[in-house]
């Protein structure tokens, strides 16, 4: 097994040139299919939609959870340290 520490930048550059000149390697170009791109992009797009909807749900509905000091429940000693 070749140790990666044995490869220097010149060798990597040579390998890179080899790939560029021998492309495509087996006579046919295999590219990512439409299904492949769909798997990469659609869930990510849906995730962004979920983020936006949930992130602004209070603005959309005009309502938000009720919160008071009792719920916040800060540690008093820590509040004092910060004040100091």
């Amino acid at each position: 097994m070749v140790n990666n520490n044995d490869l220097n930048f010149t060798q990597v550059a040579i390998k890179k040139l080899y790939i560029l000149f021998t492309f495509p390697p087996d006579g046919g170009v295999k590219v990512l299919s439409a299904e492949g791109w769909a798997l990469l992009l659609i869930p990510t797009f849906l995730a962004v939609i979920v983020m936006l909807l949930y992130g602004f749900w209070d603005k959309i509905t005009g309502m938000e959870y009720y919160v008071d000091d009792e719920i916040l429940g800060y540690d008093e000693k820590m509040v004092n340290i910060e004040r100091r």
Binding site: K15, I19, L20, K30, S33
Partner: peptide, 20 residues
């Protein structure tokens, strides 16, 4: 960068590797 682009990278893989 070292592979020379995405299509060149996928060209080195089998169809199973590229199947969702």
């Amino acid at each position: 960068g070292v592979l020379g682009g995405f299509d060149r990278a996928t060209a080195l893989m089998s169809s199973t590797h590229l199947d969702p």
